Simulated assay, not measured.
Amino acid sequence: MNRWLPAPWLSAGLFVLWLLLNQSVSLGQLLLGAVVALVVPVLMAPLRQRAGPLRHPGLLLRLILHVGLDVVTAALGVGLGMLSAGRRPPRGRFVVVPLELRNAHALASLAMITTVVAGTVWSELAPDRSAVLLHVFDLDDDHEASFIAHFKQRYERPLLEIFE
């Protein structure tokens, strides 16, 4: 089963996506969607990484809830910052955050978290994975250390416990 269907969820997603993109459920589209859903995961299997270790699922759930809350509050903060930009323009700046994470899955998760939280952009990862360069929408010089401490405590620490 794994040889012919190495990623069943990916196959299901590809099949549904095929039908949605073609906006048709004709017999031909169903067959083409099934072929794509079966062939693409088999061809791409050598490129996929093995699943990462997942420890502390309760901590993972709490991290997801924290990120959801941060997405909403950061979006509101960026929105208010844009509305008040005429009176006080945002002070965007680059911040280097030292990292303890080395696991590829944990780093990918951290990159996704950084991307979805409004006001932060993952700009560069050091070649030795020891630091990440982030762009922050609005940050005073005085608050850089507190931002780094918050970022590490809120996102990196839970990911360390979950993946490493």
Rank of each mutant, 00 (worst) to 15 (best):
V25S: 11
S26G: 13
L27A: 15
G28E: 09
Q29R: 10
Q29F: 08
L31G: 14
L31V: 14
G33A: 15
V35A: 15
V35S: 15
V35Q: 12
V35P: 08
V36I: 15
A37K: 09
A37E: 03
A37F: 04
V39W: 12
L43P: 00
A45T: 05
P46T: 02
P46K: 08
L47S: 09
L47R: 10
Q49V: 00
A51H: 01
P53F: 06
R55D: 05
P57R: 13
G58N: 01
L60N: 01
L60F: 08
L61V: 14
R62F: 12
I64Y: 06
L65M: 13
V67M: 11
G68V: 01
L69P: 02
D70K: 09
T73H: 09
A74G: 08
L76K: 02
V78D: 09
G79A: 15
L80P: 00
L80E: 05
G81Q: 14
G81A: 14
L83C: 10
L83K: 05
A85T: 06
A85V: 03
A85I: 01
G86F: 07
R88A: 10
V96Y: 04
E100Y: 03
L101V: 03
L101R: 10
L101K: 05
H105S: 08
L107Q: 03
L107G: 03
A108I: 02
S109R: 06
S109Q: 11
S109L: 11
M112D: 09
V117A: 14
G119N: 12
T120E: 09
V121K: 02
V121M: 10
W122L: 04
A126S: 15
P127G: 12
R129Q: 10
R129W: 06
V132Y: 00
L133I: 01
L134E: 04
H135C: 04
V136W: 12
F137K: 04
F137P: 02
D138P: 02
L139A: 07
L139S: 04
D140N: 13
D140H: 13
D141Y: 06
H143S: 14
S146C: 04
